[in-house]
Design a protein around this nucleic acid. Structure first.
Length: 488
RNA sequence: GGUCCCAUCGUCUAACGGUUAGGACAUCAGGUUUUCAUCCUGAAAAUCGGAGUUCGAUUCUCCGUGGGAUCACCA
């Protein structure tokens, strides 16, 4: 389909500007560019577009790198790496942009803006007053001054026409000549604009496919006119659909409450789940498979299946996706996931040991979708029974008054005897030891009091699971104590 | 406002012009050796509207409608 792809090695890039944290939309763009490069054994470049020193936020580059690294989105060239084309940070490439600027000046295709800011603003105002679109090219001077670098350098649009171009996702697109203008190439502070710099860099870095959000569609004619002026061939354009807010009223953006992608790490999402989920918003594999490993995504990814329409970011499904990836973990791997996130509320409990925690893992993993949920459960005391004996005063004794304790007592005593000789190597073997008796007296009649005296709770995992988690000694001790309390 | 883009269950999406319009999340209802959780099964749920092309439109064309993007010395 893409004949160039066979001949030319695929090169894609992610080119964020360092203006703060990475959010969902940015990462999704990075991911698609990354997946496509990896699928075709191509090159993926991380380029920092720091040409607006006003908006720059200190530490952003490290944040961007950290977010990508967390998700396993690796780059071949990026800030600090050796490259055949110089730095991947635009502020370190200023002489290059200047060089191209002077080429345009020499060709008569660029000129210094002769007006003051106020004058330009006045042009704009009168255009608005006349209900006409403001176009700088209407005010282009007859004769160009020489450029001393203190004025903004503007493009002299080489060909004012309707542009039509091909987009791998959207098909044939076009826009009229009112979208063309003498845009600024180099700002008065010496930095290039995005319009100018990205085209030069993509060219010099050999980028074959540009993936970016649809907010750039409307400026595409301006870009194309710069390609033409510079005599640079067009790469393949791949427009990604927007990610929308819940209420669908807007694109998801930083100002609209979009979260820092690294917050999801804090909440305990697995990077593979995040990548899987992001890959599926705006793209589909064409099959009914939804859960993908990182490598499976690389294999399955395909530009032809990228969606045109915007997608709402659905946290509920992300949660489900995280569970899918959590389920794929071994108990050992799950333990590694859990261990750094054990709240003090849990580890400070009197019977807290790693062994008990290890036996509790199967119980924990069926109850949580994320670490954040784990913390919520811990805060609610959902696992306290594993590491501390129940508060008999508020559970057993209260229950004694409410129900028929005289009936429960002999059953608990019988269970105690049975458990003394039981095999505690799994909850199944514990269940096997008690089951015949439970069926004899009625399951609820035994299991219900047993669970309460082991956990102190009305709602909890089944008593066999509890017994296995806390071990034989503690199990017997708790039942004995409960019996004493009931008798006393 | 000009220009441009987009449109299938609430949400993410599938469907060479011919399907009972499929799957997943969420929801609801059952079930799984007591409860919570997990898991399983089932149900409800969509082609924005109107013309046109066609034997036949979710699919192609046009016009509406709705939503979004963009009109910077931001990217």
């Amino acid at each position: 389909m893409d004949h160039n792809a066979d001949a030319k090695k695929v090169v894609t890039r992610f080119a964020p500007s360092p203006t703060g944290f990475m959010h969902i939309g940015g990462i999704r763009t990075a991911l698609f560019a990354y997946l496509y490069a990896r699928k075709h054994n191509g090159t993926f470049i991380l380029r920092i577009e720091d040409t607006d020193k006003e908006r720059e936020v200190a530490g952003s580059i490290e944040q961007i790198k950290e977010a990508l690294q967390w998700l396993g989105i690796t780059w071949d060239y990026g800030p600090g790496t050796d490259t055949p084309f110089g730095s991947c940070i635009q502020s370190e490439r200023l002489p290059t942009y200047l060089e191209f600027a002077h080429q345009l000046i020499a060709k008569g295709l660029a000129y210094p803006d002769p007006y003051t800011t106020e004058e330009v603003a006045a042009f704009k105002e009168s255009a608005i007053a006349a209900k006409r679109p403001f176009l700088f090219r209407d005010h282009r001077p007859e004769v160009f001054e020489t450029w001393d670098g203190t004025k903004p350098l503007r493009l002299k649009v080489p060909d004012i026409k309707r542009y039509t171009w091909h987009d791998e996702v959207r098909g044939e697109l076009s826009a009229g000549e009112e979208m063309l203008d003498d845009v600024i190439l180099i700002k008065s502070d010496g930095y290039p604009t995005y319009n100018f710099a990205h085209i030069i860099d993509d060219h010099l870095m050999g980028v074959t496919h540009i993936m970016r959000g649809d907010e750039f569609i409307s400026s595409q004619p301006k870009f194309l006119s710069i390609y033409d002026a510079l005599d640079i061939p067009y790469p393949t354009f791949v427009t990604l659909p927007p990610i929308l807010r819940d209420d669908r009223t807007k694109k998801l953006g930083k100002r609209d409450g979009a979260k820092d992608i690294l917050d999801y790490r804090t909440d305990g999402y697995l990077p593979e789940a995040m990548v899987n989920f992001l890959a599926l918003t705006g793209w589909n594999p064409g099959t009914e498979q939804e859960v993908f490993s990182h490598d499976e995504l690389i294999t399955a990814f395909d530009i032809s299946k990228i969606q045109k329409a915007g997608a709402v970011f659905n946290e509920e499904k992300l949660l489900w996706m995280n569970r899918q990836h959590l389920n794929a973990l071994s108990n050992e791997a799950f333990m590694e996931y859990l261990l750094p996130a054990i709240p003090e509320q849990l580890s400070a409990l009197p019977q807290y040991t790693i062994n008990t925690l290890t036996r509790l893992v199967p119980t924990i993993r069926e109850r949580i979708n994320t670490l954040a949920e784990f913390h919520t459960e811990v805060t609610a005391g959902e696992y306290d029974w594993a590491f501390t004996a129940p508060d008999y005063e508020t559970s057993i004794l209260k229950w004694k008054n409410d129900t028929d304790a005289t009936q429960a007592l002999p059953r608990l005593k019988m269970a105690l005897e049975l458990l003394k000789n039981a095999d505690f190597s799994s909850s199944e073997t514990i269940k096997a030891a008690l089951w015949p008796y439970a069926e004899e007296v009625g399951k609820g009649e035994l299991l219900w009091p047993l669970r309460v005296c082991l956990s102190g709770k009305i709602q909890s995992p089944d008593p066999f699971t509890i017994a296995y988690s806390i071990g034989q000694v503690e199990t017997l001790a708790r039942i004995e104590t409960a019996c004493d309390k009931l008798q006393g």
